[in-house]
């Protein structure tokens, strides 16, 4: 919508999303669109519904009202085939959530073999390439418990990528990391974005958002307060809430 020159339908499109948990209205009509190959960042104070929004995109959380489409799939369709959706949408979590009883390589291989029933040898080759790509060559046989936080998070990214998704969702993936390892993960994500992977990133790393994002959304209490290209949003925020938030965090 923001980039009519592209002329193609957005890959991810959220229209007027509403979600409440009990008495708390977490999403109060959120709309956003992400074109193929774009990277967008969602920033905002904790509790503003950023994680919930990401979880709605791959149907981990059902919407109360509104529509979401991902690469032509109606996420809000009650007859949705979740597996078809989830093979196109990769998700990386703050706590990595690797499977601790499997090695790094097995973690990356599991879902394509079990869920997509792809040929094990093909998957293994792809998995090894992905581990090399996230700079974990030599760690194939290590168990999650033997890896640092930053290494685990990169395994988690490779695990998502091995499903060959069209969109990647990152939910504060560096928030649990030591400052030294934050960078190695951000480098990996930046490379992905530069290669043209469509990315939706929830992050508190403003420097990173400014560098990587094509567009930044500022959310507060369930609404998108304002959105703009990073240069604009960070240097000339229009809304007082954005100014206050950026003042606090920068």
């Amino acid at each position: 919508m923001r980039d009519p020159a592209r002329g193609e339908a957005p890959l991810v499109s959220i229209r007027d999303a509403h979600k409440r948990f009990g008495d708390v209205e977490v999403l109060k009509g959120v709309s956003l669109e992400v074109a193929k190959g774009e990277a967008i960042c969602i920033i905002g104070p904790s509790g503003s519904g950023k994680s919930t929004l990401l979880r709605c995109i791959n149907a981990l959380v059902p919407l109360d009202a509104g529509t979401i489409t991902v690469s032509g799939i109606e996420v809000t369709d009650p007859k949705l085939d979740k597996i078809v959706l989830r093979r196109r949408v990769g998700m990386v979590f703050q706590q990595y959530n690797l499977f601790p009883h499997r090695t790094a390589l097995q973690n990356v291989m599991m879902a394509p073999v079990h869920v997509l029933r792809q040929d094990r040898r093909e998957v293994e080759q792809r998995a090894r390439e992905l581990l090399r790509k996230v700079r974990l060559e030599g760690k194939e046989g290590a168990y999650p418990g033997e890896l640092s936080g930053g290494q685990q998070q990169r395994v988690a990214i490779a695990r998502s990528l091995c499903m060959q998704p069209e969109v990647m969702l990152f939910d504060e993936v560096t928030a649990a990391l030591d400052p030294e390892t934050v960078k190695e993960v951000l480098v990996t994500i930046r490379e992905l974005a530069e290669e043209g992977m469509t990315c939706l990133l929830v992050t508190h790393e403003m420097g990173f958002a400014r560098e990587v994002a094509d567009h930044v959304y500022f959310t507060d209490r369930g609404v998108i307060v304002e959105h703009a290209p990073p240069a604009e949003l960070f240097s000339a925020p229009r809304d007082p809430r954005t100014r206050e938030f950026l003042g606090r965090i920068l």
């Binding site: 597996i83 990769g90 879902a111």
Partner: peptide, 15 residues
Amino acid sequence: STIEATEALGYSRLG
């Protein structure tokens, strides 16, 4: 959160 990771990867409950 581990179970959520399986869901995000497309696993069924049985899988």
